[in-house]
Design a protein around this nucleic acid. Sequence first.
DNA 1: CCTTTTGTAACCCAACGAGTTACATTTTAG
DNA 2: CTAAAATGTAACTCGTTGGGTTACAAAAGG
Lengths: 139, 139
Amino acid sequence: MFSNSQFAVAVHMLVFIARGQFDQVTSEEMAESVNTNPVVIRRILCRLARGNLVISQPGALGGTKLSRPADQITLLDVYHVIEGCEAYCLHKSQPSETCVVGRNMLPVLEGIMQEAEAAVKEKLSRYTIEDVLRQVLKL
Amino acid sequence: MFSNSQFAVAVHMLVFIARGQFDQVTSEEMAESVNTNPVVIRRILCRLARGNLVISQPGALGGTKLSRPADQITLLDVYHVIEGCEAYCLHKSQPSETCVVGRNMLPVLEGIMQEAEAAVKEKLSRYTIEDVLRQVLKL
DNA sequence: CCTTTTGTAACCCAACGAGTTACATTTTAG
DNA sequence: CTAAAATGTAACTCGTTGGGTTACAAAAGG
């Protein structure tokens, strides 16, 4: 969960796009706001597009826009697109099969971690890109 | 949050110690159950000891025991000891100061992430090592 | 046809996690 | 007093990963 900066950058990008209501935005412009390389932006952009959060157009006058209004994109949507499959990290090596604790620890921990992750998702679902944009502009 | 296996291993260790109610347990025994190197165990053990969750004794017949009953150690206690300071990852490079979004994104995200982390902590506080041990033995 | 932009591949490098060896220190047994 | 067993910790390796960078094919408008 959030072990790299991709989620934060993705939210930043979406908010940046949302602010310029009408026009499309280029990866160059986003890179400048985030202060990183455009390729880093485009890598994340790809995933956002595949997750149907944005629509990108190549070519001159190309760029990216939101696929739907900013108040209909939640941070949970972003989380789903970015975090992929493994949200948390458990044992690296398979614990002992001959020890009761070793044998059963993983499934038990799995259950607890999923519960924790569900709590996070619930929180994230309560914020939209619009909400974040509003908070950003209010500061 | 949980970007490495230390939290899982720490819980594993504590449950392992709790199961052997009376005796002390050696890092060697824990390493066998977790299936890793004893030094990996002792590194985590150190932090658990400094966090007053366990008491370790060097020397022959030495080992480790819980500092208090297993039903008085929550997973939140473990989280506090293991996760240290930075629980989540935001931007790697400081965003643009000249862009409204760039300038204000970090504090806004910080607030949201702290709320998410609080939700996780709340969930973790509801489980004790005793609870986990019971679940493990029931499987 | 030229320019602009996305989409991706390929590479480098720094950071980090985990495993391992080694050893000083502590403590008990004999 | 010495040997053995255990913790505590430093130091090293190695594989993985994240992020930055260059390069280039493909798309699209003027």
